[in-house]
Amino acid sequence: MKQHMRMQDKIILRLGAKFLVPFILLFAFYVQFHGDFGPGGGFQAGVIAAAAFVLYGLIFGLDTAQKVVPKSWLEKGMAIGVLVYGGTGVATMLLGGNFLEYDVLHHHNGQHYGIIAVEAGVGIAVTCTMTLLYYLFAERGRR
């Protein structure tokens, strides 16, 4: 225990993480878009995607993770998510409906499009916020 090894030197962890992260992200997308059919949706997908980044950060260190996904992106992504959601609502208003009245988006599949759009917004916002939270807390700990 005296000799501290860096985490990323542990081969199992490193390989495991490298192997897992893409799959987790894939899974997140699955949850995102399968939310209409099974459990899940934007929020859950967002958290899972964030978990992928968290895992990456845990194994390879915060700096490496921040090189992949910089903090400023997350900050903006957080805002973009809300804007996508709200933008959908504004779009429906511009098309003559009430706020978030998806039926005006498309005469037949309006509800589908609307739900996909807002779920995407939720997903983006949650991914970015959760990852950002991890970054901020972990960064403080480093001093």
Binding site: K76, A79, I80, G81, V82, V90
Partner: peptide, 15 residues
Amino acid sequence: ALIIVTPMLVAPILV
């Protein structure tokens, strides 16, 4: 709707 939504959308824009 606008009275609530406007500030809620301007806030992310402010970022």
